[in-house]
């Protein structure tokens, strides 16, 4: 799974910490998601979708390995 959370976060001018606080997770979790080390749950993905005001598919993409 690949994502463009970092880009979406930059568009909203949010730091990792600010984004983490908005969706109720730790900064390290955001860092891990951005680095593709952790695949978030559907709940978290929908929270991000709501915050970015975009469908989940726009910033999460399946990679060849998936």
């Amino acid at each position: 799974m690949e994502n463009t959370i970092k880009v979406e976060r930059a568009i909203l001018s949010l730091t990792q910490d600010e984004l983490a606080k908005r969706i109720g997770v730790s900064r390290q979790t955001i860092n891990s998601i951005e680095a593709n080390r952790y695949v978030p749950s559907t709940v978290l993905a929908l929270k991000l979708s709501e915050l970015f005001n975009k469908p989940v598919n726009d910033f999460f993409k399946l990679s060849i390995d998936d």
Partner: peptide, 11 residues
């Protein structure tokens, strides 16, 4: 629990 407990720490 951790200071900030989220789905990743649970996992």
């Amino acid at each position: 629990k951790d200071k900030v407990e989220d789905e990743m720490t649970v996992s």
